[in-house]
């Protein structure tokens, strides 16, 4: 077992072995979550604070449930309507919270790098629940677990990630993770929604969806935000669905047993045909949500273990915990 991180800020700093460690532990928590007695003690006595500077229902609920099932005291702070509106800086908010001695801080913020900045200023484990267009590591990990369970492996698969790559932290974390685990990653979408020089990431880029899906094992759809469909990035919703929406006809280009994924919330009829999203033979979208709780439990369990060890060694060396 390998896991040496103090924080989970992104997929980028993780070693492949660390990814496998998280996923293996998450398997145990999947079993626990399916049992009647859903309690474990990995975080007992610890305080987890969820700070969401951007509104979120699903991710926040998933982290909250994960913390509670592991025995932590969980506090949710809806930062969107808090003191940040009163002019307090991110750093000051962080220091205020730090004085309450949290052990785990789960943070979502609208600016890329904001969670890294925060992690420098607090002495607890920080989990990135999404920062700007940068990373959303737990989403990539839950996607990886879902793929591994459906396909029996997490290497040598062809994965097509489709849609708004440029504005998506989910896409960034996923392509890093899938790359580290030695999969073939394809990005599919119009050039206006592709990041600059994305081909340098070691991925294949397609603007024709049928070509991009050809022979794929996994089709991962991304959400396209409505404000980007008004002619700024794509001409209209209906043209987008026509060219890049996932329907049965386009999906037929993928492998026969290809699975369909979506990080949610879905825009039915925009990026994905409702019938496909509901097709239990193809869609693993509900399973993704289930894996989300398990993966977050695993990540917090590992980080809490490292935090305890770090504090213990500080105590032995006589360094105060501030």
């Amino acid at each position: 077992m390998t896991f040496t991180q103090n924080h989970l800020l992104g997929i980028e700093p993780l070693q492949p072995a660390e990814i496998t460690t998280i996923l293996d532990l998450a398997e145990d928590y999947v079993a626990l979550n399916r049992s009647a007695e859903k309690h474990a003690t990995a975080l007992s006595g610890m305080t987890q604070i969820n700070m969401f500077f951007e509104a979120s229902t699903r991710t926040q609920a998933s982290f909250e449930l994960a913390g509670k099932r592991l025995g932590a005291d969980v506090m949710n702070m809806a930062m969107a309507q808090s003191s940040l509106k009163k002019g307090e800086t991110l750093i000051d908010t962080a220091l205020t919270l730090n004085a309450m001695h949290p052990d785990l801080l789960v943070v979502r913020h609208g600016s890329s790098g904001a969670v890294n900045l925060l992690a420098e200023k607090v002495n607890c484990a920080v989990l990135n629940a999404g920062d700007g267009r940068h990373e959303h590591p737990t989403q990539a990990l839950l996607d990886a677990l879902t793929i591994r369970r459906a396909k029996g492996r997490l290497h040598r698969l062809t994965v097509a990630i489709c849609g708004d790559i440029a504005h998506s932290r989910v896409a960034r974390s996923n392509l890093l993770l899938l790359g580290k685990m030695e999969n073939r990653v394809r990005l599919v979408g119009p050039p206006t929604l592709m990041p600059a020089q994305v081909a340098e990431f070691g991925v294949e880029v397609f603007d024709d969806m049928r070509a991009g899906l050809e022979g794929a094992d996994v089709v991962m759809m991304l959400r396209l935000q409505r404000e980007r469909m008004d002619g700024g990035f794509v001409p209209s919703e209906r043209e987008y669905f026509h060219r890049y929406g996932l329907d049965a006809e386009k999906l037929a280009y993928a492998k026969e047993d290809a699975i369909v994924m979506h990080p949610g919330p879905m825009n039915r009829g925009v990026e994905i045909d409702g019938a496909i999203a509901d097709d239990i033979n193809r869609s693993v979208i509900q399973e993704q949500v289930e894996m989300g709780v398990a993966v977050r439990m695993a990540a917090m369990d590992l980080l809490a273990g490292n935090l305890r060890r770090r504090r213990e060694s500080q105590r032995l060396r006589g360094v105060g915990h501030g």
């Binding site: 980028e12 790098g113 267009r133 940068h134 990373e135 600059a196 020089q197 994305v198 990431f201």
Partner: peptide, 15 residues
């Protein structure tokens, strides 16, 4: 500046 680094960091970039 736009490029691989900017894309990796998810920061708004200019050509």
């Amino acid at each position: 500046t736009s490029g691989k680094f900017a894309s990796l960091r998810g920061l708004p970039a200019v050509s």
